[in-house]
Amino acid sequence: MSTTTTVQAPVTTVATPVRRTVWKHGVAAAAAASVVTSTLAALASAAGVSFADQTGASIPILGFTQLTFVFSLIGVGLAAVLARKARRPRATFVRVTVALTVLSLVPDATFGFDVASAVSLMTLHVVAAAIVVPVLAGRLADRR
């Protein structure tokens, strides 16, 4: 009579790195920034800020929503690309977005807006960046 003994090796699982996707959180941040900037623009408009340039054309409140969302999505795309391509995705993303935010202030200062409109527009750019950039940067690795 023969007996067979089966020995089972212990099973070890290796934790796979969690892929920290930027898309879901980025879209949520873009939506939040759009709501906040539109609300602040509406409040500024109600307080007397015209958002009109030298030709008299005024920026509609829905324009704040749309442009904030579109440019925030561009930031999400940038974060996704840097997550795959940059050696230091987080630092690169922060540097690039800070530079782009500063550049976004130039038209507000040069397109003939009155002081209240220009300051309000600049503030809205910074507010949108302050909402979106930290969310996306937090999803990026320090190093690849």
Rank of each mutant, 00 (worst) to 15 (best):
S38T: 12
T65C: 07
A118E: 04
V98D: 01
T12W: 15
R144K: 11
L82N: 01
P107E: 03
R143D: 12
G56Y: 08
V135S: 12
T101H: 07
V22M: 00
L100K: 10
L103A: 14
V126A: 14
D114L: 05
T37Y: 07
G75R: 00
S50Y: 00
V27C: 09
T110G: 15
I59W: 00
A28I: 12
T68V: 05
L43V: 14
A42P: 13
A83C: 01
A31T: 10
V22H: 00
A86M: 06
P134E: 02
L105H: 11
V119T: 10
R20Q: 08
V14A: 13
Q54V: 11
G48N: 07
R87S: 02
G63E: 02
T13D: 14
A31G: 10
G48S: 09
S104E: 04
P134G: 08
F51P: 09
A116E: 03
A141C: 06
V18S: 14
A116L: 01
L103P: 12
A129D: 13
D108W: 12
A109L: 15
D142M: 10
P134N: 09
A83W: 01
L103V: 13
A129K: 08
V70T: 11
I131A: 07
R95I: 07
S38R: 01
A32R: 03
F71V: 05
